[in-house]
């Protein structure tokens, strides 16, 4: 892995530009405008938000390029789009239409149960979900330029994102105190390379930004995830499944910037109308969990 290459500077560089901001799921040009006006740093263009994918079922695929192009025309901030895990042909299409970032996402139905996409040959950066340090480092080995917690998309419940962020932060701390002779054994146990683990030990952080996703629904959720170590926030269903999306979007943006200024987070939490209803994680049948897709 050459983290000093030009290719890496450009890919991770764009991820750096999105730090401290909010990336919002949108399903049409009007929603994209609302997101941009609220101060989103990027939008994720998709046909159905995760909460609807969950209730409607069926195979969830990459969005229609026509829809993505309409959203690209509507806003001047970066536009991201999702492809299925392992579906490199969908990723090639997204690159061809000039998407700024590709999310190889467990929210869509996986196309390959064995392999994720080899992301190195692409000019466009990728973001991937992860639940623990091993998954995070494997995605980086494959070329991901940004990570995000998987959380449980479309649930409106922050508990899984918290679990995943804490798991990663705990292991990051542990890696910094590993002796050199422990690194190979540790790498084998988490399914990553000793080189990458050594890199993390040296720099005391992941080589790419790590954002929070999967269940963010309120300004307080955003502040919580930032305080736990997230560098930005993805909001999927949480905005456009709430009663007043424009107001909630603005509130989550401000709470993310000022996540340690509790007067501002309190102010932004006031009178927001109803949040999305949300799901108790234990009520989701195990075979319908999105976070267990990919490895």
């Amino acid at each position: 892995m050459n983290f000093e290459s030009k290719d890496y500077k450009l890919k991770v560089g764009l991820a750096e530009m999105l730090k401290g901001g909010v990336i919002m799921d949108v399903t049409n040009a009007d929603q994209a405008k609302i997101a941009e006006d609220a101060g989103a740093v990027a939008v994720m263009a998709l046909e159905r938000i995760p909460a609807d994918i969950r209730t409607q079922g069926g195979v969830a695929r990459m969005s229609d390029p026509k829809l993505i192009k309409e959203i690209q025309k509507a806003v001047s901030i970066p536009v991201m789009a999702k492809c299925r895990i392992g579906h490199f042909a969908e990723a090639q299409i997204l690159q061809a239409i000039g998407v700024d970032f590709i999310d190889e996402s467990e929210v869509l139905t996986p196309a390959d149960e064995e392999y994720h996409i080899n992301k190195h040959p692409f000019k466009i950066p990728f973001v991937c979900g992860c639940r623990d340090i091993g998954e995070a480092l494997r995605r980086i080995s494959e070329g991901a330029a940004m990570l995000r917690t998987k959380g449980e998309a479309g649930s409106g419940n922050i508990v899984e994102a918290v679990r995943h962020m804490r798991a990663i932060q705990k292991e990051l701390k542990r890696i910094t105190v590993l002796d050199d002779e422990e690194i190979i054994g540790y790498s084998k146990n988490i399914g990553s390379s000793p080189e990458l683990v050594s890199h993390v030990k040296l720099h005391k952080k992941l080589p790419v930004p790590n954002f929070a996703a999967g269940g963010v629904a309120t300004p307080a959720d955003a502040s919580l995830m930032m305080q736990l170590g997230a560098e930005s926030i993805f909001v999927g269903s949480g905005i456009f499944k709430s009663s007043d999306p424009a107001r909630r979007a603005k509130a989550i943006v401000r709470a993310t910037t000022h996540y340690m200024d509790f007067d501002i987070v309190a102010l932004e939490s006031e009178d927001l109308k109803e949040a999305m209803k949300g799901l108790e994680i234990h009520d989701i049948p195990e075979d319908q969990l999105l976070q267990t897709r990919g490895w």
Partner: peptide, 11 residues
């Protein structure tokens, strides 16, 4: 710094 100018101006 670098970032999204629309967001920076709004905030």
């Amino acid at each position: 710094p670098g970032g999204e100018s629309t967001t920076l101006i709004k905030l």
